[in-house]
Simulated assay, not measured.
Amino acid sequence: MSVEFIGMIGTQEVSEIRPATGPVVDRDTVRRFVAAHEEGGFDRVLVGHSSSTPDGLQVAAYGAAHSERLGFLVAHRPGFTAPTLAARQYATLDHFSGGGRVAMHVISGGSDTDQRRDGDWLDKEQRYARTDEYLTVLRRAWSDPDAFDHAGEHYRVAGVRQEIRPLAPIPVYFGGSSDAAYRVGGRHADVFALWGEPLAGTAEQIAHVHDAARAAGRTEPPRISVSFRPILGDTEDEAWERAHAIRDGIVAAKGGQGSFTGNRMRDAGPPPNVGSQRLLAAAASGELHDRCLWTATAAASGAAGNSTALVGTPDTVAAALADYVGIGVSTLLIRGYDPIADARRYGRELLPAVRTELARRGLDRDATAQGVPA
């Protein structure tokens, strides 16, 4: 297994403890984000999506033009763009970025409030049914050699034959924690993305994804991604001091400042999406789980996004991440509360420590082959 590392970029440096400042699209900030992740050895960066933030494909295109090898995982909500058009958009970006650097992160939509800002009034089950059909058409547009027709509940197209196709296969990542998400993602996803729960809960979700893939007739299940917010220190005490300061900052901001994890994405009342409900349930059962998983940040933010932390020295957090790889995770999505500075530190200290720990446990053949000490 080769483990993939994903960070996150935006057009402003913003987090739960950092309010947005400056222009909505700050080109220098995008370049600094890209440089921090490329120089740090990340494989990809996630470009998020909401109804109020800049278009992710254009952000990714700008980032790709200012990098050499970094990949871009562009969040995408089915339903607002025709699947045939989205197929051309992503394929075009794949060509301009040199091939093999583009991936799609499919999010059917966990917030009714945010969906309705773009005019989508379907309920959650209807959104997942639409996503199922959408991805069927999208993949055919990328790969079918002959013209095809499709007539379904949500889409009807005729004579589809794309001139622009990806230079390399575009992986489809898929987020969600509901039964509908397992069903649709189990059928279509190359990588199924989860938020950072305790190991037992993550193993439970992996089993659900694998069961859904088998039910869909797949012989190989999706790979699994898990997301965390590492909080590092030179010592354990320093890491925990910083963690408590971050938690206090989120509380002071009444749940957070960030576009993708703060109030802008929230519905009134308890979160409607199962992923957030699961994080809050984990937080209610205790602040500290397993080796160093800390749920207080999720509780403070209302679990509005991937919000659980791993707290400790780089070696402690690396060992915790390796524990997840040990139960079947192949992609680690990590981002910090001081986004660019944390990304740089992850690249200097955390990613090398994870690779060393994976090689020591025999969990990463690529790292062993490259001479990382076992």
Rank of each mutant, 00 (worst) to 15 (best):
residue 163 E to Y: 00
residue 163 E to T: 08
residue 163 E to V: 09
residue 164 I to W: 00
residue 165 R to P: 00
residue 165 R to E: 02
residue 165 R to W: 00
residue 165 R to N: 02
residue 166 P to S: 06
residue 166 P to A: 06
residue 166 P to W: 01
residue 167 L to N: 00
residue 167 L to D: 01
residue 167 L to F: 00
residue 168 A to Q: 13
residue 168 A to F: 00
residue 168 A to G: 00
residue 168 A to P: 00
residue 169 P to V: 12
residue 169 P to T: 12
residue 170 I to N: 02
residue 170 I to S: 02
residue 171 P to D: 09
residue 171 P to H: 04
residue 172 V to H: 01
residue 172 V to P: 01
residue 173 Y to A: 06
residue 173 Y to G: 02
residue 173 Y to W: 13
residue 174 F to M: 11
residue 174 F to P: 02
residue 176 G to E: 03
residue 176 G to S: 06
residue 179 D to A: 15
residue 180 A to E: 11
residue 180 A to P: 01
residue 180 A to C: 05
residue 184 V to N: 03
residue 185 G to V: 10
residue 185 G to S: 10
residue 186 G to A: 13
residue 186 G to Y: 08
residue 187 R to T: 15
residue 187 R to S: 12
residue 188 H to N: 10
residue 188 H to T: 12
residue 189 A to Y: 05
residue 190 D to S: 10
residue 191 V to T: 13
residue 191 V to K: 05
residue 191 V to G: 05
residue 192 F to C: 09
residue 193 A to Y: 07
residue 194 L to P: 01
residue 195 W to K: 08
residue 196 G to P: 07
residue 196 G to A: 12
residue 196 G to V: 11
residue 197 E to I: 10
residue 197 E to F: 14
residue 197 E to R: 12
residue 197 E to L: 15
residue 197 E to H: 14
residue 198 P to I: 15
residue 200 A to V: 14
residue 200 A to K: 09
residue 202 T to H: 06
residue 202 T to Y: 05
